[in-house]
Design a protein around this nucleic acid. Structure first.
Length: 452
RNA sequence: GGUGCUAUCGUCUAGUGGCCUAGGACAACGGCCUCUCACGCCGUAAACCCCGGUUCGACUCCGGGUAGCACUACCA
């Protein structure tokens, strides 16, 4: 693992981050990204940071932030710095804050100005409508070295004229000035060197005055730098823009402390092709979210692993193996074992199809390994709910207690994958069948529960 | 269209030039156990994308195809 660390990073404390957008429930693929970051951080005695990337005000969903933090907490993915879930509410820890990008406007202003002043960025006034028209008019239109001088920006009209228009209240964006025909190489910890030519990059929008916020690209680089992030471990969908990010680090003069990159393979649909989407859950009948989510914005409800009866350890184990595997045949991993054995160079390069059946198997294994007493505690709330208004036939009507429940669970647990299924398997122990007063089972209901 | 990434059983994967007659797990199938079903146990079937090259020897290295995926927004 040590050889993965560049000299310039050698002395720095390992710091990784998980930086979700609060645009809805945390997708299971996002959970895996968070998990791998967490495992890496713990293994190296480093910091796991959580930052909220809410630079798109139009996509903000109320409650999403709470949801994300609660989900990570449920799964046992601990956060050392940034935002975390404590006693049912969000708390902020660390001194690189604030950790919500929408609260960091002043910081970004400063760095946008730096780029403008150093000639690495420029003001552009083309409206979205004008750009759409341009794209309709010219096939494969791209805002870059070939086209920028035909557009409405400070490169064409001059900086003074641009500043006057801004002062007059005109909306604008700041674009990154990309020098053409330069080969940019990104060293990826999983894939090796990836090189692209800068000519295929467009002059990315870095800042939008309409909502006074930067875009992902700028905010991301500034924050990772300021928060002293040493490894960026994120989804493969970011690989194509990684060279842009390298260029940004260079423009800021931060290349010597630039984090290392690792782009994780995508989680794919179980059927067909393409990456697993939020809709696949409803379509295929299994959860793609850790917790049930009530979307306040569109009124939809999405099912969650927790509510479906999954143990967090099972979800972690299942997810860890979707894209990572050690040498050998071990399938069952505790969080501690994962922390010990995980390594980025054993992460697969190709996407993994999401196999829900295997997920169920993992839960089955974890359920079998739990004691009857522990399962009884988890099952009691369900039992009480089911028994409301009904008379248990056990023990001549005496109260159903935990120890009784534990014994019953011991009899049927090997038949189930999930706690709630216990009711289907064991309800006749607690409720007399219709038209009888006691259970048909000879050794139950008559005297007491089985004594074994 | 352009750019990039990827490529072992249906699925997740082991494999880093001879240990591969390609291993494990999920799912499937069969058997045993059993009053049924399930669990469990035992077993069966199931893969190196294609074509070249390097080599005494390629799943492993190289080249070219092909296919899949990702990206290509004032979204992240």
């Amino acid at each position: 693992m040590q050889r993965q660390l560049k000299c310039s990073n050698m002395a720095r404390k390992i710091c990784v981050r998980f930086a979700p957008s609060p645009t809805g429930a945390l997708h299971i693929g996002g959970v895996r990204t968070a998990l791998y970051n967490y495992l890496f951080a713990r293994q190296h005695g480093g910091t796991m940071l959580l930052r909220i990337e809410d630079t798109d005000s139009t996509r903000f969903v109320p409650g999403a932030e709470e949801y994300i933090l609660e989900a990570l907490d449920w799964l046992g993915i601990g956060i050392d710095e940034g935002l975390r879930w404590e006693n049912g509410q969000i708390v902020q820890v660390g001194n690189h804050g604030p950790y919500r990008q929408s609260e960091r406007r002043e910081i970004y202003h400063q760095y946008v100005d730096q780029l403008i002043n150093s000639g690495h960025a420029y003001y552009a006034f083309d409206t979205p409508e004008q750009l759409d028209a341009k794209r309709a008019e010219i096939p494969n239109f791209q805002y870059d070295a070939r086209t920028r001088m035909q557009m409405d920006n400070s490169l064409v009209i001059g900086m003074d004229a641009a500043k006057q228009r801004i002062a007059a209240g005109e909306k604008y964006v700041v674009r990154f000035l990309i020098q053409p025909d330069e080969n940019v190489t990104v060293h990826d910890l999983i894939r090796g060197d990836v090189t692209i030519n800068s000519s295929i990059l467009d002059d990315k929008v870095l800042y939008k005055s309409a909502d006074d916020l930067p875009t992902y690209h700028l905010a991301n680089i500034v924050d990772d730098h300021l928060m002293e992030v040493t490894q960026v471990i994120r989804g493969e969908e970011w690989l194509p823009s990684a060279p842009l990010h390298v260029l940004l680090y260079r423009a800021f003069g931060w290349e010597d402390t630039m984090p290392q990159f690792a782009h994780l393979p995508l989680l794919l649909k179980p059927d067909g092709n393409g990456k697993l989407s939020k809709r696949d859950g409803d379509r295929l009948g299994f959860p793609v979210f850790p917790l049930e989510f009530h979307n306040q914005k569109d009124g939809t409800v999405s099912s969650g692993y927790r509510e479906s009866g999954y143990f967090p350890e099972a979800v972690i184990n299942f997810l860890a193996l979707l894209g990572w595997h050690n040498t050998g045949d071990q399938e069952m991993f505790s969080m501690d074992e994962l922390i010990e054995q995980f390594s980025l160079d054993r992460v697969s390069k190709s996407g993994a199809k999401f196999d829900y059946e295997k997920g169920k198997w993992f839960n089955h294994q974890y359920l079998q390994n739990k004691s009857n007493e522990e399962l009884a505690q988890l099952f009691m709330p369900i039992l009480e709910q089911k028994l409301a208004g009904q008379t248990p036939v056990l023990n001549d009507g005496s109260t159903v207690v935990d120890t009784t429940v534990a014994k019953v669970i011991g009899l049927v647990k090997d038949r189930v994958n999930f706690i709630p299924e216990l009711w289907e398997q064991a309800n006749f122990f607690f409720v007399a069948p219709p038209n009888t007063t006691r259970s048909r089972l000879p050794n139950v209901g008559k005297k007491t529960v089985p004594t074994t």
